[in-house]
Design a protein around this nucleic acid. Sequence first.
DNA 1: TTTATTTAGGATAAATTTGTCTTAAATAGA
DNA 2: TCTATTTAAGACAAATTTATCCTAAATAAA
Lengths: 151, 151
Amino acid sequence: MTHQKQSMFSKSCEYGIKAMIYIASQSMLDRRVKIGEVVEHIDSPVAFTAKIVGALVKENVVQSVTGPYGGFYIDKHRMSQIMMIDIVTAIDGDSIFNGCGLGLKECDNEQPCPMHYKFVKIRADLKRMLNSTSILELAQGLESGKSILMR
Amino acid sequence: MTHQKQSMFSKSCEYGIKAMIYIASQSMLDRRVKIGEVVEHIDSPVAFTAKIVGALVKENVVQSVTGPYGGFYIDKHRMSQIMMIDIVTAIDGDSIFNGCGLGLKECDNEQPCPMHYKFVKIRADLKRMLNSTSILELAQGLESGKSILMR
DNA sequence: TTTATTTAGGATAAATTTGTCTTAAATAGA
DNA sequence: TCTATTTAAGACAAATTTATCCTAAATAAA
Ligand code: FES
Ligand code: FES
């Protein structure tokens, strides 16, 4: 049994989050960005990332314009209200918060799995964190050079 | 973009944990159990579960005996020292604790991703929880009827 | 020793996730 | 209008995870 590649979020979700942070950081500078520029800055496969970003357009997390001088952008005034949880649930759904950690059909206080009370606290913290973290905050960290999206 | 099935642990890990809890609960009653009995109590595919449990035998989490009257068991006196983190890392590895939540090559305090400081706390809590939760504790919860492995 | 039972382990297959490629639709400028 | 550029969207392919099937090895009892 060789190890899995299990991580907190799916690859789709990782790409989606990074793409949103990069687009937001450029929207702060009033720059619309093309998908090619996005993937250069987050090191992700272009067509796959385009699909994920496209899905987030449908979810109204990000806006797009087709054609020359087109690209993606996020409305400056909405950036403080777009929370990480919106992006994560749009891509990965809510099972990481609401599903049973041991895979039972539903997570249920009345008929808990053996790890239930251990999990609920961790998941509540994760949910709270994603709920209170805005795309604005993360984009500011990137723009100020405090954080990076590639290495 | 239809939602992923992203959860905390892989299916392999979920099956592995549940199998260990069931085997431990029976070992408390001095019962060795066959894989068929295990999967009946945790609702998992038999051959797949057998592989995962087999891997945990190699990792010395659980013991096995082949042939008639054989099966799996966990040494009573070790049950308080077998921690959830041992099972999780044996199957899913350590990337959920130590890897970057946004998929950067490594998680690094010096060059953090935008969510780094948000992630480290959650991951430390998760790690601490798994580090301090023994198979004994979970098996006792199951045996006493406080928790269940199927529904 | 022979047979039955059970775990061990490999080959293979199905399902899901991740990724590519191609064409269509929208838009701006010449 | 025509062309170039860019997102939208679908078909397809590769990689990984999940799952099945078959045979070997170990062991206990007749
Ligand atoms: S029932 Fe398993 S986490 Fe709640
Ligand atoms: S660098 Fe991303 S979580 Fe630490």
